Simulated scan of single mutants.
Amino acid sequence: MQKLMAITLFIGWTTLASLHGIAQQPADTPYFRKLALDNDIEAYMGKYNKVFSFIRVNNDNFITHHKLMANTSSYIGVHADYKWLSADLSTGLPRTFVDNAIHGRKALGIHLGKTTDKMRIDGGYERFNGLVLPLTTRPAHHDLKTGFTYTDYSLQATYIFNAGKFSLPAAMNYGAVQLRSAGTLLTNISTTVHMFTQPADSARHPSPGASHVMQALGDHPSWMNTIVHGGYAYNFIVGHGNWSINPWLMTGIGAQRELKGKAATKLVYDYRCTLTMGYNSPQVYVYLNAFYNHIESRLRYSNLIVRDNDLWLTVGYRLGTLSHKIMGLL
């Protein structure tokens, strides 16, 4: 299954790269303008959390009163866009993880995307080793380690309906300059595969923390949610496009299917909100981004709410195009 999803993600990224030839910057309008320098390099830092909350668990009241947390942390990273290629590298900051006592690679994430004037497509892969049930706010030895690994694969597409006035590149990553305030209705379709796994030894001899999680997850801890969203975004502009505040709100409903077994398709819902604010100029840009996502899945023995919240600060510098191609490709 993991190989299949990795192949799917690769195909999705290949498709994104192929869009470069047809996804030109929107023409200048009274509401926004394109930038002469469309390559960039960015540095960013932030704090990410992923929390799992179980409700209505059969015969287990303990886990309904404690949040299961991925071993996330504060992070720093660099990102670069050059022609059709985007590259990103980040790392967690030491001593900022939920449980700093867990050894080895704690988290891995890959996210790829392409933004055009009307549409954004992006895919992602996340893997977290060592889910933790914090019992108190005291140091990590008071936490219950579960031995579980959580992995998700995601692919989504967002389409806006007012591309004549609302610049999607300006709103998403400051890839253009919005000159006047404007808003847009939008729609989004997303597919996410959620997977909980355990090493064989941990499954044969579960810890107390793992036992609570197993009780809530049941026998088939992997499923796929496909959700269609509707929403609205508005870009508030100050200072002829130099300063902006851009809130997004989306809510959706869709279907859930277990990847093993023959459980019936279930109805699920999701809502998410984003707030971006910052400074944009022809060469330098700085923005602060806050993101929150809430999705509820209906498992066999419980309902599971997955919440993601991310806050990061980005500083970017725009670059020109090199006079010669890089390795004959870029």
Rank of each mutant, 00 (worst) to 15 (best):
I55M: 01
I55R: 14
R56M: 00
D60K: 08
H65Y: 03
A70K: 03
T72V: 02
T72P: 04
S74G: 14
G77I: 03
G77S: 01
H79Y: 13
A80M: 12
D81M: 02
K83L: 09
L85S: 10
D88H: 15
G92D: 12
G92V: 09
T96S: 15
T96L: 13
V98L: 08
V98Q: 11
N100V: 02
R105V: 10
K106E: 13
A107Y: 10
L108N: 14
G109V: 13
G109M: 13
I110P: 00
K114T: 08
K114P: 01
T115I: 12
T115Y: 01
T116V: 05
T116H: 09
D117R: 11
M119F: 09
D122N: 15
G123L: 07
E126S: 15
F128M: 11
N129T: 11
L131Q: 04
L135N: 03
T137H: 08
R138Y: 11
P139C: 03
A140M: 02
H141P: 08
H142G: 12
D143L: 01
D143W: 01
T146Q: 07
G147C: 09
T149S: 09
T149W: 00
Y150N: 01
L155Q: 06
L155P: 00
A157L: 09
Y159R: 13
I160N: 14
F161Y: 13
